[in-house]
């Protein structure tokens, strides 16, 4: 592989990266080639020393995705950041996906619980439709209480969601720092 092939491949692999960032990255490698060539190395030698563009691109992409998930908070961006991070190595699949699935599962279950509690007065209406007005006072108060509990819980879940998002980001960053692709 020569200089142009290396740079073209890197550019292709980084097509999802914002143009100004991508140009900056490519410029750094261009400079590397210019100086290396001026020091009497061949293009092939320099490419060999730089290593696989795929490995370099994975590293850059993971970092780019995490930065994006930090700036623009959305589930989609978080999903991309997680995907990019565990593409770095198999090791990451175990260390990121395991805890994330576990915690996310519990979170989801709690979210569903809070929604069900909040709509419990609707269940009361269903109850009346099928069972008539037996025990109506008790059921009415119970459903109002559960509804209130559900609303409080929903508010809590929103805060916990934000907290989990930030913690996951920090955990991913820690992983990128310690586990990265290499030679």
């Amino acid at each position: 592989m020569n200089k142009n092939e290396f740079l073209n491949q890197l550019e292709f692999l980084l097509e999802d990266v914002h143009e100004s960032d991508r140009n900056e990255i490519l410029y750094d490698f261009l400079e590397h080639f210019d100086i290396g060539l001026a020091n009497g190395k061949s293009e092939e030698e320099l490419v060999l020393e730089l290593g696989d563009p795929k490995v370099i691109a994975k590293d850059l992409l993971a970092d780019y995705r995490v930065t994006k998930a930090e700036k623009d908070k959305s589930i989609g961006n978080m999903y991309k950041a997680i995907l990019a991070t565990f593409s770095l190595s198999f090791f990451n699949i175990v260390f990121i996906v395991g805890p994330v699935i576990g915690i996310f599962g519990v979170y989801l279950a709690l979210c569903i619980t809070s929604v069900v509690l909040t709509i419990s007065p609707l269940l009361l209406i269903l109850n009346v439709m099928f069972n008539g007005f037996a025990n109506i006072e008790l059921n009415f108060f119970a459903s109002i209480m559960l509804c209130g509990l559900g609303i409080l819980m929903s508010i809590g879940m929103i805060h916990i969601g934000k907290f989990l998002y930030n913690v996951t980001l920090r955990y991913i960053k820690f992983n990128i720092r310690t586990i990265k692709g290499g030679k």
Binding site: E31, H32, E49, L50, G51, P53, D59, D63
Partner: peptide, 26 residues
Amino acid sequence: YGYELAQNISRKIEVADGTLYPLLRR
């Protein structure tokens, strides 16, 4: 500069020079 750093490091540690640039960016 990047190239200089790559030379200084690979003199003692075997590492793909390309991985330095993502690290420097971060």
